[in-house]
Design a binder for these strands. Structure first.
Lengths: 134, 134
DNA sequence: CTAAACTCTGGACCATAGTCCAGAGTCAAT
DNA sequence: ATTGACTCTGGACTATGGTCCAGAGTTTAG
């Protein structure tokens, strides 16, 4: 089997070397083998796995979730994978809603702020300084 | 001046006691004074400041940004405050865009997944396992 | 006065995802 | 053979925002 070193793996997948070692430390990605010198060697499978991790992160999964996904994937449990992805979707939708609310508040505040003059007339400060408890 | 203890402050503003102490440790909120026993006492100003912090967080500002905002607020520098809020808005808009992309990807993947059958037919797994480098 | 409730300190620890380092050893190309 | 590039380990450190703890001391209500 053709194997590559950690530097080449990192370069080809587009992940920092330290991050590859980090993934190993947390049990997410083990090298296929080691040279007598201790140098890590990776094969096709590890390369795929690392790409899987990278894509999972791009989709907003945490490393723990990716670990889970990889386990499910190995078990070829399509139903669980679908469920996991759905949970992720719900979470992301909730976060988007939250951010939308924040964005709207900020937009209003900024639009209402003249950008000069008395601090008392700045709605941004006022919003943060309100006496009301909410 | 009427002052209150840390417990009452935490309760009234709706923040855990430990968090109030944490804010003190990082230099964000100092008690107005201390009793001879060392007990912290907070006045109106501190209560306002803590509410300011709480609202800032709700708007998605980091504690560092809130610190900055408080300094600008003390300096009553309306222009800087507006700029800071605008930067925050831009950041939030960018994050929303990112999340929207992720959400769309997940939706497509989930919609295309039958939820059963061969793993090879699961588009979620396929998306994560693609041989292509992107 | 006593008992319950509150508060003090300083440091450790949590999760998340890395990032960096020194000092030693190894590999590859010339 | 030598040089330059690469890799090893393990632990410390980064940032963010808390959260918890023990053991001692203080305040307050009955």
């Amino acid at each position: 089997m053709k194997t590559i070193g950690i530097g080449q793996l990192a370069k080809e997948v587009g992940v920092p070397i330290d991050t590859v070692r980090h993934y190993e430390r947390i049990g997410l990605l083990q090298p296929a083998t080691r040279l007598a010198s201790g140098y890590r060697r990776y094969g096709e499978a590890e390369q795929k796995r690392l790409r899987f991790i990278r894509r999972g992160k791009a989709l907003g999964f945490t490393l723990d979730e990716i670990d889970e996904l990889l386990a499910l994937s190995a078990g070829r449990n399509v139903q669980s994978i679908r469920k996991s992805a759905s949970a992720r979707l719900t979470d992301i939708e909730r976060r988007i809603e939250e951010l939308n609310r924040v964005r709207d508040s900020l937009r209003q505040l900024i639009a209402a702020c003249p950008g000069h003059g008395r601090a008392e007339a700045c709605p941004i400060l006022n919003a943060l300084s309100e006496d009301a408890k909410p």
